[in-house]
Design a protein around this nucleic acid. Structure first.
Lengths: 164, 164
DNA sequence: TATTGTTATACTCTATAACTATA
DNA sequence: TATAGTTATAGAGTATAACAATA
């Protein structure tokens, strides 16, 4: 069989054509860049995402946040600890269900989230710079539609399985 | 401040609107589904990706493959070991540079790759099913253009830094 | 002196299990 | 009996360091 040559900067055609491969790597790349961009704020991407979720949600339980961020619920403990120690969010017991922690963003948290969001928008603008405004809209809309069944069917359920 | 409500299956708006968040999770989701789909073949996604790269490349060195797959070069050792033990690829010394292993896919490897690729295409069709043919083309083309500078500037260089 | 591939080891991250308190 | 949260620990996965062969 004739030897096909790699395409576009050396990525082999057989790899570049795998559905979702480039998309997954694109997501990974954005995350790496954002991780670096947030370093001056002393935040990991996941801290930022917690703040982002809280910024539009009043209060959330740790289980709910774990579902949105696709993280194990046990990881939320330390994550919320970090933010609470810096005064960026606060835990209170849910009076309607005293097992639950109602996590709420503070004013300081909102300010930090505003700055982090600005950095995230910068990274986004850089990475997706090669696209036209229309293309960006199309891609965002398409991904959103693709993920709609995922968020409704998968993520809302707690990931930890109980009883085995 | 008024409490905005989550949108679309419960994903908070502040999270859903972070550039790249849904895209990254979409990539993660595809990978999970593909991981499950490949289980009957006894392959991890990364094994499949090695075969995919080799299928269009004649021979590749382990360093090159590590660059394409964004994996540490030390991980390629075990990965190629796995495939070689199953007779899906073979290592030979590069006569022009005897430090390098020229890795080549075998006929059995091509057959397994063909089956794995079919499964991957199925998963891709399911995940991106909500999109029209045109939208799929637009998304794929856009991601490809976005990633072009990445593959030329980043991935081709070995990731391991030498000298510090 | 630098690079490819290899191995062993250390480290990081995540999931598992067990517990408390609530329901 | 089941769930939210917590903690400690075990396990998986990855990177680091050191080495041999080659350039």
């Amino acid at each position: 069989m004739a030897e096909e040559r790699p395409v576009r900067g050396g990525l082999p055609a057989g790899l570049a054509s795998v559905t979702g491969f480039q998309l997954a790597k694109c997501g990974w790349w954005m995350e790496q860049r954002l991780e670096e961009a947030l370093e001056p704020l002393g935040l990991r991407v996941r801290h930022f995402l917690v703040l982002a979720a809280l910024s539009s949600s009043g209060t959330l339980s740790q289980q709910e946040m774990a579902g949105y961020l696709l993280l194990d619920p046990t990881l939320m403990v330390g994550l919320v600890d970090d933010l609470e120690e810096r005064g960026l969010c606060e835990r209170t017991r849910d009076p309607k269900d005293r097992r639950r922690h109602s996590v709420r963003i503070t004013d300081d948290g909102r300010e930090v989230h505003r700055r982090a969001r600005a950095l995230a928008d910068e990274v986004g603008a850089e990475v997706f710079g090669p696209l036209t405004r229309d293309e960006r809209r199309t891609v965002a809309g398409a991904i959103e539609r693709v993920m709609e069944p995922f968020w409704t069917e998968q993520a809302v359920r707690p990931r930890r399985r109980t009883a085995r």
